[in-house]
Design a protein around this nucleic acid. Structure first.
Lengths: 338, 338
DNA sequence: CTGAAAGCGCTAACAA
DNA sequence: TTGTTAGCGCTTTCAG
């Protein structure tokens, strides 16, 4: 095995504790002693065994982040932000992906990494409230995203209804009358797109515009292909929308592709709004108008929640945090300026 | 703290060892004993403390993957594949990002996670051979990507020269004569784009076409914005290419955006080829022709290398693995069929 | 087949 | 200011 504190102590002719003091930058060590120990450390190439430290302290300094799919740029960007936020608190992030499967989400939330991670940030899709209520693992859990749970855990999500309404309001303001919603979940007991769908409906109702089922396009998943498929379905059944509000940017991008294949112009014939503001939406031959959640804030607050529960108030009231969001208006609703 | 083996043993009225045997599925345990212990485990909600196990065994079951940037879909997709590949060997993946900074890459390769991770898969950008030669950490290290090092570590990368040549050959075959290279690195001692640039040059030379510096567009980074900037520079200085081969898909996408802003049609006026085959390249109003490295194979082989060194042959010869690649031809060179 | 005891490397009391 | 000692929870000899 590697060199341990003991080896260094032996070499330097001091006690283990003294070496430990040096390694941990304890204040009360004479410079001479520090130098001597440091030399032994360097000569032996000593590196502290963090596993042993973790065992002793009961903490690992690792937070897990579980997202559905790293291939979705929204989650990739979010993960990057979480890694950075955690690093500022000297925490390391272990990344899991659940593929949005209830089974994997349960596994993760139930603590199959118990004792390896100090806390967990989970962005669930199919998880149910009852799954959460049966949780026995004691590591702090922070929930992310649109789904609402009646369970005692911190929850961080933007105001999805308000965000959706602002997107639809923008479309109405641009003179659109038949505004479709793309991305309701097909064949799912619960409806993960619930809040955005609700916002869409509320705003259309307020504007006196139609919001019937003929304007709702369900999808099987959350990717570009799913958005493309749903858009094709919508057109095929003659819904003839003059605008589409999609559950997320990937679906919006898939939809735009189909529109262009069918010879429909964006935004002249059909305006499109997405949700997430992934970097991809700022490129492409038509840039995408989209709801932009404050990813930095989401990441920061999620990590803060974990850190606070770990440090001070484990039994405090569950917090409900609402980071900000913006509507970023681009060519897919505004048209292109030359 | 939580319940430990001792608590379970006490409850079941057996020794610690017996409980351990049950937990670890030891063969020689009587069914009756097993049942009794299992009941105590369930009643107490016991979960093994992996940290302690790790300390004892000297292994953690964690592999680190360090990539430059999770926001680049290529790395996000690759990370997903690595996580899956690792899971098949019962390994967990800890994700780091280096931002492509030499300093962070050194930190990671030097083992600042020593004893927490069993092995490391690193995709370096700025790291130098000498940094690698000075490495003292003993965890297996596997290198990924285009950079070549004269250091005794496993290295996994597709044949970048051949891949680049196939891309350029395709452009030549489509009748293009002034084929620019986009993405040489500006202000960098070494040239990370070296091999792809070399492939571009070789193929053009073989075809008797120009490959001078006027056709090379340097970039400051690896993102869409960098590609856009470089494309704009190229056009502004009157290089007038009829095709562009970009270092990666993101740069190609940024370039296409600029072409479209300037009123140039893809591929009629300028054909574009990328590198990586990220999912985004299959969407957009013009899909992107690109070199597709076999990400699944890269991930699998990287994990295999780590696992093998961990298991059997730590001192074996460094391996040089070349996963496959394909040229995927799409609209950005072929044009659009209706 | 099961029990007792040692020790992985570290930190935190407590002593000196 | 530095040394001694007792575990953190687990696996692993070695006996029984």
């Amino acid at each position: 095995m590697g060199v341990s504190l003991k080896d260094v102590a032996l070499r330097a002719g001091v006690s283990i504790k003294t070496v430990s003091n040096v390694v941990n930058d304890y204040p009360h060590v004479t410079p001479a002693m520090r130098a001597r120990v440091q030399q032994a450390i360097d000569e032996l190439g000593y590196r502290p065994n963090l596993t042993a430290r973790h065992l002793r302290k009961g903490r690992t300094g690792i937070i897990a982040l579980a997202v559905p799919e790293l291939g979705n740029p929204y989650f990739a960007e979010l993960a990057g932000a979480v890694i950075d936020a955690a690093a500022r608190h000297d925490y390391t992030v272990l990344l899991d992906h659940t593929a949005g499967l209830r089974e994997k989400e349960m596994l993760v939330s139930q603590g199959f990494r118990a004792h390896v991670i100090d806390g967990l940030i989970l962005s669930p899709i199919e998880l149910e409230t009852e799954d959460l209520l049966g949780r026995t693992d004691t590591a702090p859990l922070v929930l992310l995203g649109e789904r609402e749970y009646d369970a005692p855990y911190d929850h961080i999500a933007i105001d999805n209804v308000a965000a959706a309404r602002s997107a639809v309001r923008h479309l109405v303001g641009m003179g659109r009358r038949r505004i479709a919603f793309l991305g309701a979940r097909r064949e799912s007991a619960r409806q993960p797109a619930h809040l955005r769908l609700q916002g869409w409906r509320e705003e259309l109702a307020a504007a006196g515009l139609p919001y019937g089922d003929e304007l709702v396009a369900p999808t099987g998943g959350y990717g570009r292909a799913d958005g493309a498929q749903a858009m094709a379905d919508l057109l095929d059944r003659g819904a003839a929308p003059d605008a589409v509000f999609a559950y997320n940017d990937l679906q919006a991008i898939g939809a735009m592709r189909v529109l262009s294949e069918r010879g429909l112009r964006v935004p002249e014939d059909v305006a499109v709004v997405g949700f997430d503001d992934i970097e991809e939406s700022r490129y492409g031959s038509i840039t995408l108008t989209t709801v932009s959640p404050d990813k930095q804030a989401i990441a920061r607050q999620a990590v803060d929640c974990v850190v606070q529960r770990l440090a001070g108030s484990p039994g405090a009231e569950p917090r409900r945090v609402r980071p900000g969001h913006d509507l970023v208006v681009r060519e897919s609703t505004l048209g292109r300026h030359r």
